[in-house]
Design a protein around this nucleic acid. Sequence first.
DNA 1: ACTGTGTCAATTGGATCCAACGGCGCGGTA
DNA 2: TACCGCGCCGTTGGATCCAATTGACACAGT
Lengths: 235, 235
Amino acid sequence: MTATDSAALVDDLANKLRDLIVSGEIAAGTPLRQADLAVRFGTSRTPVREALRQLQAGGLIEIFPHRGAIVRIPTPWEVRESYEVRAELEALAARRAATRLSTQAIAQMREHNDKLFDLTRAAAQEGSQDSTSQILDAANEYALHPAILAAADNARLESVLDGVQASLPKNVPGLLLLENASHREENHREHTRIIDALAAQDANAASDLMRAHVLSAGDQVARWYERRSTKILRH
Amino acid sequence: MTATDSAALVDDLANKLRDLIVSGEIAAGTPLRQADLAVRFGTSRTPVREALRQLQAGGLIEIFPHRGAIVRIPTPWEVRESYEVRAELEALAARRAATRLSTQAIAQMREHNDKLFDLTRAAAQEGSQDSTSQILDAANEYALHPAILAAADNARLESVLDGVQASLPKNVPGLLLLENASHREENHREHTRIIDALAAQDANAASDLMRAHVLSAGDQVARWYERRSTKILRH
DNA sequence: ACTGTGTCAATTGGATCCAACGGCGCGGTA
DNA sequence: TACCGCGCCGTTGGATCCAATTGACACAGT
């Protein structure tokens, strides 16, 4: 995956910016000054602008004619819409994966899933240091779902799904897993059931379970955004 | 939809280019010279480059480091992958639309569907003039599917689906409808059944019918590309 | 005191300029 | 004659320069 194609520099910029945004390091709603970003990355404004265009195409930022770009602030209903789309795509991935997974790949999934559950629980008890939360977030989301997605063996599906997820900050799901024990356990339980369905090569069950799982996670995330927006309204 | 946001000029360029490509006016595999495009659109190379970036993000073209951009040539299996994804998304759209359509909207759908069927059949008998084929292609694809998509009332779904479709030239489905009578009739029959399910507010049936419909259309398109590639191999 | 207008500063957008990279052909040598 | 290397040319990529648009502030008039 190291510079498979395309002009590295601009895409690197786009990726770095995307990471900064989805990791929450650049908060939603922040205006993006081209000049600032240019000095931050040590380049001229030209590649920054091209990178911004790319992010705009992905829907992560919004560019206003002569007023600059801002990080899009997802509204709760946008979150629900995105998760509804994502649920359908992940359901498709699970359906395809069900008939393509080796038994040992499934065993590894199960192992990783349990291990990550333990890690998350441990980190939650220790306290919320940013670094660990980041790591866990990455580790968790990099765990079951990408494995299933890879097993689905459909490049287009992968890129579309990446696009959907890249339009929302992904630190929120991680936060929820850390701060809400029951949600964490529910999450693990659903993961386990999905793996069971995959092991049984029951494509329909895997698909349905995955859809429900993503929808329920999306509901949690949407509620988080709803709480946040009411909090903001109260100032 | 007239310049809702973002700097109009660059996005206009991107849209024009996209249209030129998906309409087949610029064939797949064509190298895109920035200078040529610049003079063609009467601008400098700078906005052209930004537009190219945007199209690259959509997956329609491919940019090689210092060698230029080419229109991506979809391989048959890529076509299948795309249609599989599209089928799932359109199925979701149909499921959502089933509970949101007024009876009069359904009546209009039925009417449009029949009218377009007649138009297509008439055009097929007259002969294949490019202009009519273009019109029919646009009219057909702008008919049932977008109406259902709009009724689904999910902006994210709409944009993702647009992205999927924008990565494939859309003149091929139109051609197929013109040159293949049985496919044309099958298409109309499936559309009718979908509308029936929508009218009955049977979300599951509408969803399943739509998925099957898109998959079958995708199969036709993929076979077209397979025929084409074998023809090319034979020179 | 409030509103409307005019000017100014800041920022973006487009054009031009220059450097870097890759391909291709020519020439030299084994 | 075939192969390897060197240098030129075309194209892209990045930086800088200049114009265009927007928002804000201040001032004047009612």
